[in-house]
Amino acid sequence: MSDTTLHEFDNDIITIGTPDLDKTLIKDIPKDSLIEVSDLADNGIYHSRFEGEFGWENEIFCAFVRHDWYRKYWDLPLGLPFHMDLMKRLAEFRASQNKDLTNIQFEDEGDWCHLNYEILIPAAAQTIGDALKYANEILDWIENTVQTAQEGAAGLINGVIEKYNETSLLHLPDLIEKVKTATDIDEMGKYLEELVARFFSEIKGFQIIERKRTKTEEIDIVIVNNAEQSFWKSESNLILVECKNWTKKPAGKNEYVAFREKLENRRGRAKLGFFISAKGFAKTFGLEDLRNSKADLLIVPLDLKQLIEIIEKQLNYSEELQKFYIQATTK
């Protein structure tokens, strides 16, 4: 293999959609073209199904993988330098053991970081679908291994937060009263974060690995779904929870879109999200949800009053959440 990077290619890019992957033969791909796997959504925007392109280098068909990270928006518990170094080391390990990965290159531009490498597609692969499956198996192994490290770091951090957090000493009735009566936004956010975290922690198999309050009065919680119960077991590995700690207006279209982007940015590991609003939901929230109802992401709206009612009436948390889940799928 040469040491030419993907960025130096000056070839035509051919876009192939998911339905045509198994119909497109590798031998029919022009030597001077690159293949991008993307699907056209209803809104006219292409959604990439692979981080990179496919094409020929000399006589070997390859997947040219490109991982790009932006420091400004990095919020995972394991810092970006450790995250990308682990991915690079895993790629190097795969290259040394299986000889099907080469030309590993890392570049740190300051704001952006890039990790590029080539996956050598075996000669047995006949179609672009075969090539995508082979490449994705390698990418999934690398990303799942790094995700496990991220979850481990997040679990340790969350354990410290829970242990050394004064709100964790409050009994549920006192905590709910604090949420209802707090007048200071920061105090309200602190109590609300604890309440929401406790609620989802009570669902068997839900492990909170990340919880934080932002400067925009949001509470973000990330849950690892280890549930054995059949209803939740079929859901995604990660579940996101966002709570809007607004005291004057309901959540609307903009909040829906922003939360949806958070789900999409979890590399396909998060397909389910719960959106809790302290002041309910505007009509535009539901309309935007209907507009995206064909997608495979599900956002379940839950009014804070409804969550508190479940707790105060000592109802079954999992069963009650299932009701809201079903409502969200049948709108």
Rank of each mutant, 00 (worst) to 15 (best):
S2Q: 14
T4D: 09
H7I: 14
D12E: 15
T15D: 04
T15A: 04
T15P: 01
D20A: 08
D22G: 00
L25A: 06
I26C: 06
I26F: 04
K27Q: 12
K31Y: 10
K31A: 06
L40C: 09
R49N: 15
F61K: 08
C62D: 11
D68K: 14
D68E: 15
D68V: 12
D68S: 10
R71I: 12
W74A: 06
L78N: 03
L78S: 10
L80C: 03
P81L: 12
H83N: 12
H83Q: 02
D85T: 12
A95H: 06
A95C: 06
D100W: 02
D100L: 01
N103H: 07
N103V: 01
Q105I: 01
C113N: 12
N116I: 02
E118S: 02
E118C: 00
I121T: 09
A124I: 15
A131H: 03
L132E: 02
A135Y: 11
I138P: 00
L139S: 12
W141D: 07
V146T: 09
Q147F: 07
Q147W: 07
A154Y: 03
L156S: 06
V160K: 07
V160W: 15
I161E: 11
E162D: 07
K163N: 10
L169S: 05
H171F: 10
L172A: 02
D174Q: 13
K178G: 07
K180P: 00
T181Q: 10
E187Q: 14
M188F: 15
M188C: 08
Y191G: 05
Y191V: 08
E194W: 06
S201F: 09
G205H: 10
G205R: 06
G205E: 09
G205L: 05
E210R: 13
I219N: 07
I221W: 04
V224G: 08
A227D: 13
S230T: 08
I239C: 09
E242A: 08
K244F: 13
P250H: 08
K253V: 07
R260S: 15
L263A: 10
R267K: 15
K271N: 05
F274T: 01
I276M: 04
S277Q: 11
S277C: 04
A278C: 08
G280K: 03
L287Q: 13
N292S: 03
K294S: 12
D296T: 00
L297W: 07
P301D: 06
P301G: 01
L302P: 00
Q306W: 00
I308N: 08
I311R: 06
Q314E: 13
L315Q: 11
S318Y: 04
E320W: 04
E320I: 00
L321T: 03
Y325A: 00
I326L: 15
T329L: 15
